[in-house]
Design a protein around this nucleic acid. Structure first.
Length: 592
RNA sequence: UGGGGAUUGGUGUAACGGUAGCACGACUGACUCUGACUCAGUUAGUAAAGGUUCGAAUCCUUUAUCCCCAGCCA
């Protein structure tokens, strides 16, 4: 039962040593004062109008994580108050993503639409109390009457209607008597408030739309500000955690809750996650998918949870990342290398090593007997001895990486070159003895000799003077006759600019409307390699290959990076996705 | 120009009137059958100016900069 994956997942969270960020401190204080009777009840309230992204993952980890940490509970509740934008398929994908991230919610999945009756009752009560009224203004009229940031608004004519008249009108709205957009129900607060949110906000709008759950039962739908606080209240949420932009709305929630005299959760705002080299809005995701810049919402280049999953990210790495970036009210930008680092860190410990040659060049080992094959033991994971070894076939003809050979190498090039000796990982030391080129001058084959005394990659015995020969470089390789062909998709960041939304200074001036973030798309974000050569173990699941909790098979291709098997794979035609490269101080130093 | 938030090394985040710490990055070096991992070391910060105090990142005043709000979206 002690499979290495559950162990790692426990380590990945480690809230005990985690920093006491400001929300933890608030809860600490509440627990100390007994404010909620020791209760901690949070919720994650997505709108089912798109796929979840890494920013949501941070919120999910926060809400579910806090509940777990304080022995409380966290609800999953869909904020489905706008039927024209919401769909069941989004509900399904969101549920899948949260489960995949490893979180379980309290009770059943909840929906704002479950509370529509209650919300409506609340609305009638506010009308009866003279605190809400039906407004007949058109959207344009309402906008003009709202005033500006510096000027107060002017009251709607409907503002002084009697409660009885308002109640009658509201009931007729609810009965479906009026066309879309003809009337609204508004809270009677303060048209001169410096906080525009408080200038008689709309509570209900008329919308004859079919809702994905309530069907045609309702011709009116509550607005977010009115609905959301009541949903939290209904569920007796203690800590209602949301992003910074809702800070302005908090006084309005307070107003609704206090005037209704219902359970009043504490709202706490934190800064949403911003990552560089990517975009993070549903509108842009939709656009990238629609225009074919990516293959879909789950394209491995997308920062969606489904995209990261397909890319090969593990739930553990995303949870660790979320914890590591912290929680504050400062609008900071996180470097994507932090995310890449999180997945490297996890996969380094857990991913079995395999050898794969992506850009192959053949090497013929001239002094190795023709027709002979031997199986050499290769370590599956140097980080975890319990993973054991596997047999890798070796023969006279092998493939190595084209980049691992240079005819005229610079200093400090530890790989293969004419006359140079290198180690083949887990196999023999070879020395390059020749280069075969075609008429175009391209290298088509390398010739080499091997040293039988280095079998397994070991150092050869000392020579007559007691000196031991050494090599600096170790190359990965694959036996030509045993190699399995594969397609490998090399993903890179989707945008070349740190902030894709920012117009570069050298962008053409006119017409300025012509420029948008898509100009920053990275044309090389996907490079598909075909005819890659894999060691045979990669073609089938080996006995020594661990089972991943989500069924996705992930590997380290030695010296290259981490890769996973894509769902596009077919029997005999495997497709791998590159999750992330290994850190490479050679190329960083300008080696390549 | 109204209101609401925010500002600590390159990046992110602690310190809550008493030694500015941690992580990531970068740079050195060690180790190495992955130029990976690991290990050791170096680097660099309180937005500005005043004030209170024995003592200020922390309290006060002023300034600067950034973010959010004028949907019948959430």
């Amino acid at each position: 039962m002690s499979d290495p994956h559950t162990e790692t997942s426990r380590e990945a969270d480690a809230p005990a040593e985690a920093s006491r960020h400001f929300i933890r401190q608030i809860i600490d204080a509440d627990q100390a004062s007994g404010k909620w009777g020791g209760r901690v009840h949070t919720r994650f309230p997505p709108e089912p109008n798109g796929f979840l992204h890494i920013g949501h993952a941070k919120s999910i980890c926060l809400n579910f994580g806090l509940a777990k940490e304080f022995g409380g509970a966290c609800n999953l509740r869909f904020d489905d108050t706008n039927p024209v934008k919401e769909e069941q398929r989004y509900v399904d994908s969101i549920i899948e993503d949260i489960r995949w991230l490893g979180f379980r919610w309290e009770g059943e999945v909840r929906f704002a639409s479950d509370y529509f009756d209650f919300m409506y009752e609340c609305a009638e009560r506010l009308v009866q109390d003279g605190k809400a009224y039906v407004c007949d203004q058109t959207p344009e009229e309402m906008r003009k009457a709202r005033g500006t940031l510096t000027e107060p608004g002017t009251p709607s004519p409907g503002r002084n209607r009697s409660p009885d008249e308002n109640l009658d009108l509201l009931r007729r709205m609810r009965a479906g008597e009026f066309p879309d957009g003809s009337r609204t129900l508004r809270a009677k607060i303060d048209m001169a408030s410096p906080n525009i949110v408080m200038r008689d906000p709309v509570m209900y709008r008329i919308l004859h739309a079919t809702h994905h759950r309530t069907g045609d039962a309702w011709p009116i739908y509550p607005m977010y500000d009115f609905a959301h606080c009541l949903e939290d209240s209904m569920e007796r949420i203690t800590h209602s955690i949301c992003t910074l932009e809702f800070e302005n709305n908090r006084p309005l929630y307070d107003w609704f809750l206090d005037n209704l005299g219902v359970h009043h959760p504490q709202q706490i705002e934190f800064a949403r996650l911003i990552l560089n080299y990517t975009v993070m809005s549903k509108r842009k995701f939709l656009e990238l998918v629609r225009d074919g810049h990516v293959m879909g919402w789950d394209d491995p280049r997308m920062p969606t949870i489904s995209g990261l999953r397909r890319r090969g990210y593990t739930p553990e790495s995303i949870r660790a990342f979320s914890e590591e970036v912290g929680v504050s009210k400062y609008n900071s930008t996180i470097d994507v290398v932090r995310l890449e680092n999180a997945i490297r860190d996890d996969l380094n410990k857990r991913a079995p090593r395999r050898m794969a040659v992506l850009n192959p060049v053949k090497v013929v080992i001239e002094n190795y007997p023709e027709g002979e094959v031997e199986y050499l033991d290769a370590v599956n994971n140097p980080e975890d001895a319990s993973c054991g070894v596997r047999g890798v076939p070796f023969a006279r003809e092998i493939y190595i990486e084209r980049d691992d050979f240079m005819e005229d190498p610079p200093k400090k090039f530890f790989r293969l070159a004419p006359g140079a000796e290198v180690r083949l990982r887990a196999a023999y030391w070879i020395t390059c003895t020749g280069v075969v080129k075609n008429d175009a001058g391209e290298i088509v084959e390398l010739r080499a000799t091997y040293d039988p005394q280095t079998r397994g990659g070991d150092n050869p015995p000392p020579d007559a003077e007691g000196k031991v020969r050494k090599v600096k470089g170790t190359l990965h390789w694959v036996s030509a006759q045993h190699a399995v062909d594969a397609e490998v998709r090399m993903f890179d960041r989707l945008f070349t600019a740190e902030n894709p939304d920012k117009r570069p200074k050298d962008a053409p001036e006119d017409p300025p409307e012509d420029w948008d973030y898509k100009q920053n798309l990275n044309p090389e974000s996907l490079v598909t390699l075909r005819g890659c050569k894999l060691e045979p173990m990669l073609a089938e699941r080996g006995a020594d290959e661990p089972e991943w909790s989500d069924g996705i098979r992930r590997f380290q291709f030695e010296r290259l990076g981490y890769f996973c098997i894509d769902a596009d794979s077919k029997p005999g035609a495997p497709v791998f996705n590159r999750t992330v490269t290994l850190k490479d101080s050679w190329s960083r130093a300008g080696g390549k």
